[in-house]
Design a protein around this nucleic acid. Structure first.
Length: 455
RNA sequence: GUGGAUGUAGUUCAGUUGGUUAGAACGCUGGAUUGUGGUUCCAGAGGUCGCCGGUUCAAGUCCGGUCUUCCACCCCA
């Protein structure tokens, strides 16, 4: 019985043309990362659940893909737990591994484990897939690639500034217009402190994160529903109303947050960061956005989010500073900062705006038409020479009909076809056909190589 | 996880109040053209109508379930 072939929900196969385009994105990003002195690492697709659980908040734990233990995983589970039918209790009994949810937490684990082999500040990049058991949507998949750059073991805000420069550089090369939004968790903490709700930080940030989307009224409503005091909400209003350019906002914040040590620290960090990037002359516009919260709860300082201004799409890049991610793994006091580029969303943006360079679609440059055994043998040495000269070339593997071979070349968008039959063999030459113009000339091997390389 | 929409040749889509052999365009294969692709003309192949069940004399069409894709919420790259 045959079954219809399929792949799991939210995953995708990639055809050659798609892989070529994706590689163009990966190559561009990788090139920039290396330019700024970052080194590559890789970590396994699966991690111990103890490494992953509790790092992404309650929501995150639910979105982790868990791997069933091998062998007879059920017999050792106490009957009581099975009878209770409580997934929360059963899961740790039958699963101890999970697919990684992002690259930052595995990186923290990695840093702690290899601390003696690494040179700090450690600048690493990592381009690998991650998995989330989210419900798929446009621009949201269950398996997707992240391209992370992080500097760990340095408090300097110069790192934040350099990451913004990298962001600017990458999207400049990919020709995507962006707006970079920056905020600081310390400012958000300061705000929570000032309004007297310092232990409701998460609820407050999640709510004001929606300001742009649902409006002030609904944000206030949500805050009230979450149990934030009415007085605190009213004290929050002037902060949500902040307007003007970055330096104006900073000025107002300094006045509002003057009694909060944490808040003032955040404001000073933002000031320093903007001083740096002013000197770096970025192309993209960078703005302070107090409504930017970002859910990942390990961020402690700067938070960064990048959106394209070319179309409506979720963030295509995001990140921030985490002061103590390695602490959980036994190495406290090591601060890191990083950003993650979302390859799939960048792909979707580039696809819709047709931003791929023409050249990236091409694979084979020269096809040898196969006329039979003798002709095949005649072609092989030139084929080798072309390849040695770095020209992507292939010979049709059987002496099929001419029309079929030409159609093959046409579909693969091969720009040159070499024809060598009896008459060419007699003269020791080759017919080179330009598939774009339709012109063809009889030339010697050396000249053929020269023409192909030069065009 | 909650709510809503969707699914018909390889692809994009038609398909009337349920009614006989489910259509088109593009693509594919072959031919016109035995050493020449893209244009044109001719012919042909290709569908358990997502899957399972129900209602009916009769289901692509109605009902239930399930899966996929998409949208909103949640969250996020």
């Amino acid at each position: 019985m045959i079954q219809k072939p399929s792949i799991p929900k939210g995953t995708r196969d990639f055809l050659p043309a798609e892989v070529v385009k994706r590689n163009y994105i990966f190559d561009t990003i990788r090139e920039v990362f290396r330019l700024y002195g970052f080194q590559p690492i890789e970590t396994p697709a699966m991690e111990n659940l103890s490494t992953l659980m509790g790092k992404y908040g309650e929501e995150g734990d639910k979105l982790l893909f868990k791997i069933l233990n091998s062998g007879d995983f059920i017999s050792k589970v106490p009957e009581k737990i099975i009878d209770e039918k409580d997934s929360g209790k059963l899961t740790p009994q039958i699963s101890e591994k999970g697919l990684r949810y992002d690259l930052t937490v595995p990186f923290a684990r990695f840093v702690v484990q290899y601390r003696n082999d690494l040179t700090f500040p450690f600048r690493r990049y990592q381009i690998q897939p991650v998995w989330r058991a989210d419900r798929p949507q446009k621009g949201r998949y269950r398996e997707f690639y992240q391209c992370d750059v992080d500097v760990i073991g340095s408090d300097s805000l110069l790192n934040e500034a350099e990451l913004l420069q990298i962001v600017d550089d990458v999207f400049g090369r990919l020709k995507i217009n962006t707006v970079v939004k920056v905020n600081n968790r310390k400012i958000l903490a300061g705000i929570a402190e000032i309004i007297g709700e310092h232990n409701r930080l998460t609820d407050i940030t999640v709510a004001i994160d929606k300001l742009e989307k649902i409006g002030l009224e609904k944000v206030n409503q949500e805050l009230a529903e979450k149990g934030v005091a009415v007085e605190a909400i009213s004290r929050l209003q002037p902060i949500l109303d902040l307007s003007g350019n970055t330096s104006e906002k900073v000025g107002q914040l300094e006045a509002i947050l003057s009694t909060s040590e944490t808040g003032m620290k955040g404001v000073s960090e933002i000031k320093t960061l903007f001083e740096y990037i002013e000197r770096m002359q970025l192309t993209a516009q960078v703005e302070l956005d107090l409504t930017l919260a970002r859910g990942l709860n390990y961020y402690t300082g700067a938070i960064i989010e990048v959106k394209t201004t070319d179309m409506d799409m979720g963030s295509i890049c995001g990140g921030g500073r985490y002061d103590d991610l390695t602490g959980i793994f036994g190495l406290p006091g090591v601060s890191g900062v990083g950003v993650s580029f979302g390859a799939e969303r960048i792909y979707d943006v580039m696809e819709q705006l047709s931003l791929y360079p023409q050249k990236s679609a091409e694979s084979t440059r020269v096809l040898f038409v196969n006329f039979g055994e003798k002709e095949e043998a005649y072609c092989l040495s030139l084929l080798s020479k072309l390849r040695q000269a770095g020209v992507n070339s292939e010979i049709y593997p059987e002496s099929a009909k001419m029309k079929k071979q030409m159609t093959y070349a046409n579909k693969k968008e091969i720009p040159f076809v070499v024809l060598a039959g009896e008459s060419e063999m007699g003269s020791g030459k080759f017919t080179l056909k330009n598939m774009t113009s339709g012109e063809q000339h009889v030339v010697a091997a050396e000249e053929l190589i020269k023409i192909v390389i030069q065009s």
